[in-house]
Nucleic acid binder design. Structure first.
Lengths: 139, 139
DNA sequence: TCGCTCTTCACGGAAAGCTTCACGGCCCGG
DNA sequence: CCGGGCCGTGAAGCTTTCCGTGAAGAGCGA
């Protein structure tokens, strides 16, 4: 099952904002777009959705832009995916009464596993991992 | 992320065939379709794909139909999903060099978790679960 | 007021997903 | 050897989602 690039783009944008989180300054949309290789006008829509889901906030006017609404450690990949697609993984069987109950339970377990995995990946640890990589070169 | 109904249909069909596995007899497409609430002509295509992936096999002519190629215990939800969509979960980021490495590793972990979960759900245990349900009423 | 930025909405092509149809091929019983 | 039942296959609609573009409107600072 291929996921859409939308959640990928969203995750990149959040990561870009996470890197700037300590500075407390807003980042411009176009700047983020170029840095992460995302079509600018598309990123605008994505950030707008992230904003309505309270993951980021925006500042208008000169020196405006976007910043994270919470520390990177409190934003997970699951949050981003839910902001884009409603659910991390949504098997259509769950809403279909014609599907045998045993099978629906199997789908539900798969969904729960994916959700649990996505929610345990927060952006602070993603940031930390890139730091760890540098250290590894010294081993 | 909504999954397609295709993998849902495929899973239902496999479950239907799994129930008949002990009898060793083939089940007709239209019969399966009605029982599981799947458009008949669509199910044909799905079964065809399942066949090329060696999950089911077919018998032609009168008293023909489809049967499982292996015991239900050796077919997992992951097998069915891979037969339909190539991968259980496929984040586009993994093939995109522009995506930061740390983020790609996060996606890879999510993918691995989903795959592991899907591969641990085989159809024999789905069948067994419906049996367990009856037993629970006696507790 | 001017310039910068976000905000909002509407549009469009492209692709994928879902479904149905039509026709051909194989197997069996008579 | 002939006919009916069933699988096999490709193609054609239709719908929805994805992806991206464009332009007009609103807030903020200088």
């Amino acid at each position: 099952m291929k996921l859409s690039v939308k959640s990928d783009y969203a995750a990149r944008a959040v990561l870009g904002l996470a890197r700037a989180f300590v500075t407390g300054s807003a980042r411009k949309v176009e700047e983020l777009a170029l840095e992460q290789g995302i079509p600018g006008n598309y990123l605008v829509q994505i950030l707008l959705e992230l904003k309505t889901k309270q993951l980021v906030r925006s500042v208008r006017g000169k020196d405006g832009g976007y910043l994270l609404a919470r520390p990177p450690g409190e934003i997970t990949l699951g949050d981003v995916m839910r902001a884009m697609h409603g659910e991390v993984l949504d098997p259509p069987a769950l809403g279909d009464p014609q599907c045998p109950l045993e099978l629906r339970e199997a789908w539900a377990r798969l969904k729960a596993a994916a959700e649990q995995a996505a929610d345990s990946l927060d952006f602070q640890s993603v940031l930390d991992q890139s730091g760890d990589r540098e250290k590894m070169y010294y081993i």
